[in-house]
Amino acid sequence: MSAVAAHHRLRVDGLQLGGLQLQAALEFRAPWTVVFGPSGSGKSSLLRAMCGLLAGAQVEFARQPQGRWQRLDALAPERRGLAYAPQGALLFPHLTVWENVAFAARCRGLGRRQVAESVTEALALLGLEAMAERRPAGLSGGERQRVALARALAVPSPSLLLLDEPFTGLDRELRETLLERMRVAMVQRGVPVISVTHDVEEALRLQAEVVRLAEGRVLAQGTATEVLASERAAMLRVLG
C-alpha cells in the first residue's frame, strides 16, 4: 500500500476538545478510507479539522494533486475543494430537497443547466427523484441522510469527499445498495473518500483502508482485514 502515493495528509497536534486530546498524523492513499472508532474517539473532529471548522487548532492538511503537496489548512473552508456530508444530515430547512442538492453548484455560480444536470444525477444515484420538491421537515431520518449524501455528491469537481456517519438511519439492504453505488461513482470520478463510521460491517464491506481511532489517538492504519481482524473474527464466530 505504501507504494501508492498519498492524495491527502493530515496532522493534528494535541488539539484539546473538551476532555479529549486529538493527536494524529495520517497519510491517505486508498480511494476509500474509513475512520473507525467508538463514539467520542475524535472521528468527526478529524473530518472537521480537514474542513477547517476547528478554530485555533494546530492542523496541517494538504493534498497532492500532481506529485506536489499543496497546503489547504490556511484556506477558508469554501476554498478547500471538499464535498461534505456532516453527521446528522444538517439539511437547510428552508430549501427543498432539489435546492439542498443544488446548493454547492449554485454557490460556485454554475449555469442553470449544469446545476440541473448535477442535481439530477445525484438524486438518481440516491433514489431521491420522487422527493425533489419536498422540504426536509417532511422527510424521515433515513431520507434526510440520503439527501445529505446527494448534496455532497453534487459538489462540482471536489478533490475529496468527506462523509460523517453517512449511512445512519438506513436499512441494511438500502445501505448496501447505496454503498456500492457510491463506491463505483467515486472511483469513476477519481474522487477519494474518507468516511467515519463505528460500523464494522460497513468498513469490511468497502474493503477500504481503515484508520482505527481511540481516545483521540490513531491506533492503527491499514487494510480492513488487518486493522479490524479481531472484529472480523468475532463476526465470523457469530455466523458460525
Binding site: C51, A76, E78, Y84, P86, G88, L90, F92, C107, A152
Partner: peptide, 20 residues
C-alpha cells in the same frame, strides 16, 4: 452546523449569511 456545512460546500461567509 448549518452555517459550517454551507461554508464547506462552497459558500463564502457572506454567501452563507445570505443563503442560509
Amino acid at each position: 452546523g448549518l452555517v459550517e456545512t454551507a461554508r464547506v460546500l462552497g459558500a463564502t461567509p457572506l454567501g452563507a449569511f445570505r443563503r442560509v
